[in-house]
């Protein structure tokens, strides 16, 4: 049912993989349109050991997760923390 020749996980494996190195190259290539995926190489580097952390993709850095220790709840005219307060519930559906 899959149509593409290649499937790649640019961000997820770089950030969340427990087999990760600090720099990773991970791409899953398919050999044909109906076959499965085989491991290959891609030109990106995933980082997670730094804060903020993210992934270099297409020559630029994509932030995905960060330390917010320096974030203030109120900065001039900006207020934060107005979403995310529904504790005790879980998003899963």
């Amino acid at each position: 049912m899959k149509k593409s020749k290649a499937i790649s996980l640019i961000l997820v494996t770089g950030l969340l993989s427990c087999n990760r190195n600090h720099q990773q190259n991970r791409l899953y290539m398919r050999t044909d349109t109906t076959g499965n995926y085989t491991a290959g190489r891609a030109g990106y580097h995933g980082y997670y050991a730094f804060r903020p952390y993210g992934t270099y993709y297409g020559g630029s850095y994509v932030r995905q997760g960060y330390s917010n220790a320096g974030v203030h709840t109120s900065e001039g005219s900006v207020t934060r923390g107005g979403f995310g307060g529904s504790e005790g519930f879980h998003v899963s559906s």
């Binding site: 630029s60 917010n68 207020t79 934060r80 979403f83 995310g84």
Partner: peptide
């Protein structure tokens, strides 16, 4: 993160922010 991964591969410029950290500019 997976959805962001797919969007990146679709050619979109992306950023992540936790929902608690979204700000509102009152002015």
């Amino acid at each position: 993160a997976y959805m962001q991964d797919c969007a990146m591969q679709g050619g979109l410029e992306t950023e992540f922010i936790y929902i608690e950290d979204i700000g509102w500019d009152n002015e």
